[in-house]
Simulated assay, not measured.
Amino acid sequence: MGNRAKARRGRTEDSVVRQRVAIEGAEAFLRKAAAVQPDRARVAFLCIGTDCSTGDSFGPLVGTLLKQAGWRRVIGTLDDPCDADRYESLKSSIPESCLTIAIDACLGVKEAEPGYIVGDGPLYPGHAVGKRLSPAGHYSIAGIVGPKSVKPYWTIQHASLHEVLGMARALASAVQAAWGRPEVEAMRLRS
């Protein structure tokens, strides 16, 4: 069997149980990760995406907010995105001793309240737009930035910046709350 066939087979055999949650569920999910690794210095965030697409900027927006809040190990910001071209090399720079949380945008069922897909296991970046990048993360969070469609690139490009930014701020605040940061810091991220 060729490498492509193995990669496709590996993706269809994804054993990670994923769940759609609101921001409160994402925070509870992050608290579980914080209980596994309470030392902030041993946690890495792999924030996947690009600053060249509204919807796909979700990961770099979260990364930028986390970096501004003082997190040391953040890969993927608006200044230095972790896009498809740089993904493999940036992912490999994360020390194996770190608990890694992968964050990316995704397409799914849009509801009135912003939604996130969380899973105890790796994220498969680029799946919504047909890319086959290697999995990443011990935990994964994907922000639903638009509805699934037959034109995924168009959908992700035309996501509401207001909604994407709001979701990124909420998730960065949830990270801060999960690792016990002062409420003042969490309030700053929400504004």
Results as ranks from 00 to 15, higher is better:
1 M>Y: 05
2 G>A: 11
2 G>D: 15
3 N>H: 14
13 E>W: 07
13 E>N: 14
15 S>A: 14
16 V>N: 00
22 A>V: 12
22 A>M: 12
25 G>W: 04
26 A>Y: 02
26 A>C: 02
27 E>I: 09
27 E>G: 07
30 L>T: 04
32 K>L: 10
34 A>S: 13
34 A>C: 05
35 A>N: 13
35 A>K: 15
35 A>Y: 02
35 A>D: 14
38 P>T: 14
43 V>P: 06
44 A>I: 08
44 A>P: 10
45 F>P: 06
52 C>K: 14
54 T>C: 07
55 G>P: 09
58 F>Y: 09
65 L>S: 04
65 L>I: 03
65 L>A: 13
67 K>M: 04
69 A>I: 02
70 G>V: 03
71 W>K: 04
75 I>L: 14
79 D>Y: 05
80 D>I: 06
80 D>N: 12
84 A>H: 09
86 R>Y: 08
86 R>A: 13
89 S>L: 11
90 L>S: 07
91 K>C: 09
91 K>V: 08
92 S>L: 12
95 P>N: 04
96 E>I: 07
97 S>I: 10
97 S>Y: 07
100 T>D: 10
109 V>G: 03
110 K>R: 13
115 G>R: 14
118 V>D: 07
120 D>F: 06
123 L>P: 11
126 G>Q: 00
127 H>V: 14
129 V>L: 13
132 R>H: 13
135 P>T: 09
136 A>C: 14
136 A>G: 10
138 H>I: 04
139 Y>D: 07
148 K>M: 13
149 S>A: 10
154 W>N: 09
159 A>C: 15
165 L>T: 13
165 L>W: 11
167 M>K: 05
168 A>Q: 01
172 A>E: 02
173 S>A: 15
175 V>P: 12
176 Q>F: 00
176 Q>L: 14
178 A>D: 11
180 G>M: 01
183 E>R: 10
187 M>C: 10
188 R>C: 08
